[in-house]
Computed example of a mutant assay.
Amino acid sequence: MHNTRFLRYIDTVARTGSIRKAAEQLNVVSSAVNRRILDIEAEIGTPLFERRARGVRLTAAGELFVAYARKQLAELEHTLSEIEDLSNLRRGLVSVAAIEGMAADLLPGAIQAFQQTHPNIRFRVLICGRDEVLGHLKEFRADIGLVFNPPPDPEIRALMEIEQKLCAFVSPDHPLAGRDAVRLSECVEYPLAIPDTSLGGRGLLDEFLARRSLRLQPALESNSFEMMRNFAIKTGGVCFQIQNGMPPSRMPGGMHALNLSDRGLRHGRLVLCTEHGRALPVATARFVEHLKGVLEDAR
């Protein structure tokens, strides 16, 4: 598998932007990495990287070659996983990229339940914003993603979608805490913490407000649900999150989830997805089926 190792050299240099840093990650000497890159460049007849004083940058040809390399590496991982499954080893790595709202309860619970019957399956989870989740899938840094309201993208394939409401969250002693539902106009009387534009929930708010005379004047705008929740607790304010971001009983301070009853406030989509042409490794495919059941129960 020497050729695979050389493809990994190219991929790591592209990710780090430095031959030296790539060599450190790969635990080889810099000269070996540079030599292999030069060999490949000589073989294909064009440079893959622009050498600069402070690192390297992919050329146009390099961008194409790295995309090829990552697909080859992903397919190898899939094949090795199938071989392990056939040999009864039942081992594997599932790589997931997900929005922060899934990190508090839904995703840890799904992994814990899956590992009860598949104890040798390991997980690598990347928590990030919506666009970063999609980027990780396209660059094969993650097998599957969980994202809220992703934009249309021909490179991304949806494996499952469930409808999600945007809810208002308040602390237990908040004046609105005893309500089942509130209108946005009732929330504006309190300090507001709203998602920034990198989060899918913000799009639902902006779309609704564009058709109304109501204007929000947030005291805090953030890409972190934890930041928004803690701000709402400390200020007696209101924050917004999708309904399955965290069950109220497990939220810091026992926060209460309130449905937003405004007519015309569209529901969003929580999407389980992968790169369009990706053949999922055996362990990942099994976890996908498990996760579909978890998401179905969470409707």
Rank of each mutant, 00 (worst) to 15 (best):
C239R: 00
A210K: 13
R51T: 06
R122E: 13
L73A: 09
L176V: 01
S31T: 15
D153H: 10
R250H: 07
A177D: 02
R70H: 06
S224W: 10
A61R: 00
G17T: 09
I111V: 15
K138P: 04
N244L: 13
R299Q: 11
G253I: 09
P247N: 08
N27R: 14
H118G: 01
N230Q: 12
A61Y: 00
R229P: 04
F65Q: 04
Q217G: 00
E84Y: 02
T274Y: 03
G178N: 12
D206S: 14
L80N: 13
G135I: 00
A285Q: 14
G62V: 08
L166W: 08
L159A: 02
V66R: 01
T197N: 10
A61E: 08
Q241I: 12
F148V: 12
R157M: 05
L260S: 07
S95R: 15
S213I: 10
R215T: 10
V271S: 14
C273T: 03
V28Y: 07
Q115D: 07
S171H: 09
V28Q: 06
R202G: 03
R5V: 07
P152R: 08
L106R: 02
M102T: 10
T46Q: 14
T79E: 15
G145R: 01
V188L: 12
M102F: 11
R212L: 13
I83G: 02
V94K: 00
D196T: 09
K234I: 06
L258H: 07
R124W: 03
A97D: 03
C167E: 14
Q112K: 11
Q25K: 10
G145W: 11
I156K: 07
R202H: 12
V282P: 10
L146A: 02
E275A: 15
E289I: 01
G237Y: 06
E63F: 07
E155D: 14
L176W: 02
L260K: 02
N149V: 05
P252A: 14
A113P: 00
R57M: 10
F148P: 04
P47E: 14
V238I: 11
S18F: 10
M246V: 11
A279D: 11
T46N: 07
L295D: 03
P172H: 00
A168F: 01
F225A: 09
A232V: 06
